[in-house]
Design a protein around this nucleic acid. Sequence first.
DNA 1: TTAATTTTGGCACAAATGTGTCAAGTAAAA
DNA 2: TTTTACTTGACACATTTGTGCCAAAATTAA
Lengths: 197, 197
Amino acid sequence: MKEEIKTYLKHIKDVCPELNDNELEKFSSELTVEKYNKNDFYITAGQTQTQGGFLISGLIRVFHTDELGNEKNIYFVPENDYTFHYASFMDNKPSPLSFQCLETSVVVNFPAFHLHKSYEEFPKFDRYGRLIVEQKLKQQQERLESFLFQSAEQRYLDFINQFPQLFNRISISQLCSYLGVERQTLTRIRQKLARSV
Amino acid sequence: MKEEIKTYLKHIKDVCPELNDNELEKFSSELTVEKYNKNDFYITAGQTQTQGGFLISGLIRVFHTDELGNEKNIYFVPENDYTFHYASFMDNKPSPLSFQCLETSVVVNFPAFHLHKSYEEFPKFDRYGRLIVEQKLKQQQERLESFLFQSAEQRYLDFINQFPQLFNRISISQLCSYLGVERQTLTRIRQKLARSV
DNA sequence: TTAATTTTGGCACAAATGTGTCAAGTAAAA
DNA sequence: TTTTACTTGACACATTTGTGCCAAAATTAA
């Protein structure tokens, strides 16, 4: 079995020990490992994902493109995280966002129907799903709340704290839209912080 | 069995028909129905919820209070929705947000441990949990994304569209912080929209 | 009913943010 | 190496948003 698949199965087992090795073994039969180069698109907006993916190594930016062609980053996918748009993937609808590799990336892919089948075949898979989605919900909730009652400066500081391993790999121009400000504003924030050190 | 509890069980069954009536019956044994008056607090920030609740009728605002005592609304809980802060409830941690009734409200309550017990006793409960959390995640995701790539004006229009039943029950001053703008700005948006009709 | 409170729209001014542009510096590609 | 592309900090200016205040209207409580 490929190393990447082992890593993925280990993640599942860590989250939900109730799943036994036999079930994981069966689940793994449909997994494939794929490598993407820097700047490759994992998903292009408008596309419906026929497969889901778990990022083993690399970094992916998830962005939205408006009518004028302006891009805004909504998420970054770090190592050991799922790389799909939950809402559209679960409903089998086109993704409103594009996924592009900022670095060479290795992904474990699985067909969407295989996930649904697993929910039916392996009762404890529902638990794994629940736990993962609960994690995601918490993250999402925190991020939303940070937009509602924190300043851009605080969000910037939080980002550095929360993703120290990403901070040096993402440029200012990529980061600013994730924080919800223009590049100029992020520059001002950094200047202000630098002065106050 | 009280009407409110029947309403709640019906909601569960609608979301997850795999749960049988016997299981629901057992689950219902720990449910209580409580009424709250307008302006009553369902949860005060800092409190750890020992029970979760499902709002049968009424309307609850969920808000954050900053160091200066300024309040900002983060969510509104409409009828037939859960009234707790997922992240803190699931981890049994103090809620960072306060829940206050904007209208007389009737809630079906259940002890937190009862939920966890149900996950162990009734295997299909995990599925119900997964489906609910998936729903929440989708809503949360949409809301976050609206902050990242939509204008306040668009968010206002979306709110009217998405919650027509709430629109007339929430004042401008309560709504503005939910949309992430000051009251004056929301007034300006409304003026602009009124002119363009 | 009257009195008290809350909500709303409006105004003026201050502060923050966005827009567009430029040049130096850095990194990547030929 | 040279060339190209991208990133960054800086500037000026326009626009948007926030703040504080007021008075009219609406709502709620006495």
